[in-house]
Design a protein around this nucleic acid. Structure first.
Lengths: 118, 118
DNA sequence: CCGAATCCTGGACGATACTG
DNA sequence: CAGTATCGTCCAGGATTCGG
């Protein structure tokens, strides 16, 4: 059972995506993938620098489940797993990119008004 | 608050906004406000139909703290409080609207057995 | 070495009752 | 009407450990 506790027919058509973009790192992962085309687990991890493996793995799975990301596993030593945006993922990235850009450009007026790379 | 537990001072510049849009209802509230211009507490509550007063209040406060929403209180009986998008809020809404639209247009991935995971 | 599974904690969110 | 107080549940996500 999922988290549809609020009501039954759930008219909100956006719940699935809300669930995705509500993931703290989802947008950044999609963006990172969009920037580099294809990345390995560790590469994403380093690109986002600060995400725990579990969270990355978990978010990646949700992105896969939503059809935004494909996962290709190469059975070799050391293991190699590559993640790529699907068509939907690219579309999603295209749409959410302005959000990230706007957010990055925005002065943080709540606290530490230091280093925000534009 | 501020869940910047990861470690670095040079965190992502988007942290503030991520924190906002990670709120389950934030996007919908902003959108609702954008649709109607100005709304009262109860009106938002009914428009979103399913949000608890606490969650609404909490999310509204965060939106105010981020400077996306203004709160105007009229000292009368019965009390009247109006919420409106700020300039930034309007901008934010403009940017996130495509996301909501895209999400609404998208077929539900949760139903069909397309997951390769099992 | 790389990626995934486990454990645990904080906080998001819902329900209800109550106050000004 | 517009919230706040309190309580409880559930999940996001960080740290660590395991497997290949």
């Amino acid at each position: 059972m999922t988290k549809e506790t609020h009501h039954e027919a759930c008219v909100c058509p956006v719940e699935g995506i809300i669930d995705v973009i509500s993931k703290k790192w989802a947008l950044l992962i999609v963006n990172s993938l969009g920037n580099h085309g294809t990345l390995r687990f560790m590469e994403i991890s380093e690109d986002l620098h600060g995400i725990s493996p579990k969270t990355l793995s978990d978010t990646l799975k949700k992105l896969q489940a939503e059809g935004l990301v494909t996962r290709e596993s190469f059975p070799c030593i050391p293991p190699r797993v590559e993640y790529t945006l699907t068509d939907d993922g690219l579309e999603f990235r295209k749409i959410t990119l302005p959000v990230l850009k706007w957010a990055a450009r925005r002065p943080s007026h709540k606290d530490h008004p230091r280093s925000h790379q534009a």
